[in-house]
């Protein structure tokens, strides 16, 4: 890649930034661990999208039924 290329400069900017981190390494570790727990554990196993598998029409029918019937 040509060194004067703007994309290369942006790449170097981020690369050097990440390399020179000190406290940032700890913070990134916290962020990644948190995102892993949230998306790979909580989202996957505990938070199914209740209406996610339905088509828009089925979803409307389902909610209409919910709104017009007692539990």
């Amino acid at each position: 890649m040509v060194q004067g290329n703007v994309f290369y400069k942006i790449y170097c900017f981020y690369r050097d930034g990440f390399r020179s981190m000190t406290l940032g390494r700890t913070l990134w570790a916290v962020i990644l661990l948190k995102l892993f727990i949230m998306f790979a554990v909580l989202r996957l196993f505990f938070f199914p999208d209740v209406l996610g598998d339905l088509t828009p029409e089925e979803r409307s029918d389902y909610v209409l039924e919910q709104l017009t019937s007692k539990p």
Partner: peptide
């Protein structure tokens, strides 16, 4: 600022999970 931002970032996403699972009627409505 960086410490607070890093620890707090994305904690609000869980609220969106809850909309889809616990409050699906609301989310659709």
């Amino acid at each position: 600022f960086g410490v607070n931002f890093a620890i707090g970032v994305a904690t609000g996403i869980i609220l969106e999970f809850e909309f889809g699972t616990n409050w699906s009627n609301y989310s659709h409505f």
